[in-house]
Design a protein around this nucleic acid. Structure first.
Lengths: 364, 364
DNA sequence: AAAATTTAGCAACAGCGTTGCGTAATAGGG
DNA sequence: CCCTATTACGCAACGCTGTTGCTAAATTTT
């Protein structure tokens, strides 16, 4: 949730979100944990915990007896107190997942979409899939909303699909509004890669630093987590990482430029040289590190996950070779912990994040 | 200023900063302006304005009589109520500027630095320069501090110069601490490019969107303003934009990789082909746009400003050629409005921003 | 001169985290 | 067994924020 002015209700939401972040990261926690992590006074933490307990979001889970003194009450998140559904809309498939408040993926389904599907066809597919999922767990009253991650360009703030690449029927479609009417649920729309990096950040907790999700799947995209929030850019169009030039004299790309990362990578995979393709991708990743100085790089996408070790090794090697001069300049490279579910799960977590994540203040 | 927990003092600072941002952007403003811009209630704005007036930061500047009704009181920032000094430490020169609360540069001086200067030599040069400047305006009690923008790598949070490129005596120098002791002033240390983009953001006001400052001056660097704040990355090392590969088969760069933007650009300038060099830089800029989706690109740096029109034209052309498909995907390209002062002025504004800018909350 | 309109502020209020201090629950020592 | 030290936790009062309800002031129009 984003607002401009700061009033006391913002304080409440912010500090509650801090405690929720602790609860999501640590399996159990007590008052002293939160005090240390946040710097709030013990009394303030007591009040926040009381509010969250009353709301059913956290609950006592025993006591800890470390020795002398009154035992401390241990709390835990109540994972099944809230759910969200996430959708990953790709060119040919719709993936739906059910995610709980702790960020755990409970169900995952994949269904085919008609070739060159229309908005109406997508809405029907969403409706059918959600009905099935909502039936599984009886989510009455606990379903926060639906998150949709899909290819762009799109307008995240207005829930508008501007001109989805390779889909003929998707020009200026007000998908969020349509879906909210059709499904009777709050809907959040975002680019696939942005949803994906949100999943990684949400699962790693508040200590997750600046990070990128590199996705190789019918194109190469990048999702960014910078300064504690998803970076979408001025027009929700950040992440066209595949269309950065890495070879000035390279072949012409569909975007009109020459030697884009995506076309060079594509030529290598066409030639069957996955190792070379991975090294090309790694050059692009190091370019990102030089520009943005990231703490984490997460690798994902169907085409990449077909050769996970090759890509992971290539990127790790390139990152280490570049950073060898400085031991303080460390970047962790990993495969996505959620595999093929990462986009859909992240879309769901974006919905949960709007309600239970750190609220943002957007200056004027 | 950055803090974790949110309490009522945060509310105060935040809403005061909102009003200050309005005052900095608009030359004069009245209560209704702030109400509309921020969403605060008129009564709350009255209180904030009263506090700022009492502090001498703003003052009444007449009334506005639009027609019927009681006239509205017009306020304005008091520019000379606070000052900060900014330093741009380059390899051979020290540039000092005096900046007021409105972001206006009052004095600018350049002095040579000894070849391969030491920390002690820099401190002496700073001390001499600041004494001169403080004498000009009699800044007693109104000088907020000193901001230093210099080449990295450095550690912004701890005020530590890790290993400044090309300077032998600068390994793990705690410059902020040293300077604070030597000068008796609060000191803020940051990378040159980050300081530079802060200058542009501070002057453009709160509506400034995601932006980059491209600096060509003994190397190519980039400073980033993302999501309403400077982006420094995980280790204050963001901005090594010159060391992104744009030509896989290009010449070897000092950084060890092949075909970095910087080395390709350098070869073009060595050959005297500035137009080509500018086009190479433009490819890099468009790479940034594809990745980050920026609203503004600001061009700066001594080497670039020797051929301002060539570079501006090349970058503008490349940006427009790439974005021609989409009229909604607009990026403004401009030369820095502060010219050679941009780094030093930005460093000064970072100091002012710490006191009178939007405070940040850093989740845990 | 009276009415209408706009601006501004006083006073009471709700809600936040903070502070001061008292109470509950445990382990260890006499 | 009782007392004490220790740790955890909450009640009550407080200071401060923005909000709400209402009154006063200053101006133009009728």
């Amino acid at each position: 949730m984003t607002r401009v002015t700061a009033d006391v209700t913002f304080l409440r939401g912010y500090n509650e979100a801090l405690v929720m972040a602790v609860g999501r990261t640590a399996r159990t926690f007590e008052r002293a944990t939160v005090v240390e992590a946040t710097g709030l006074t013990p009394q303030a933490v007591s009040k926040v915990i009381a509010r969250l307990t009353a709301g059913g979001l956290i609950r006592p889970a025993g006591v800890r007896r470390p020795g002398i003194g009154k035992p401390a009450v241990v709390y835990e998140l109540v994972p099944d107190s809230r759910y969200a559904i996430g959708a990953h809309v790709a060119r040919r498939t719709l993936r739906l997942v059910l995610v709980d408040l702790a960020g755990t993926v409970h169900h995952s389904t994949v269904s085919p979409l008609p070739g060159d599907f229309t908005p109406a066809q997508l809405l029907d597919a969403l409706s059918a899939g959600i009905d099935t999922m909502a039936g599984i767990g009886d989510l009455r009253g606990r379903l926060t909303g639906l998150g949709i991650g899909m290819i762009g360009p799109l307008d995240h703030a207005n829930g508008l699909v501007r001109d989805a690449h390779g889909l003929r029927h998707w020009h200026d479609v007000p998908l969020r509004e349509l879906a909210e009417k059709h499904l009777g649920l709050p809907v959040h729309l975002d680019k696939d890669v942005t949803a994906g990096i949100t999943a990684e950040a949400w699962r790693h907790g508040a200590t997750f630093g600046d990070a990128a999700l590199i996705m190789v799947e019918s194109g190469i995209g990048g999702g960014f987590w910078l300064g504690g929030a998803a970076h979408r850019g001025a027009h929700t169009n950040a992440g066209e990482f595949g269309h950065t030039v890495v070879d000035l004299t390279g072949p012409r790309c569909v975007c009109g430029r020459h030697g884009c990362l995506e076309i060079v990578h594509h030529h290598a995979t066409e030639a069957g040289d996955i190792a070379h393709a991975a090294r090309v991708l790694a050059v692009g990743v190091v370019n990102l590190l030089q520009t943005l100085d990231l703490a984490h790089v997460v690798l994902a996408g169907a085409d990449l996950l077909r050769h996970p070790r090759t890509y992971l090794a290539a990127v790790t090697d390139a990152v280490q070779a570049d950073a060898r001069r400085a031991d303080w300049l460390r970047t962790r490279v990993a495969l996505s912990s959620l595999g093929a579910d990462v986009i859909a799960a992240g879309a769901a977590m974006q919905v949960l994040d709007q309600h239970y994540g750190i609220p943002e203040l957007t200056p004027i």
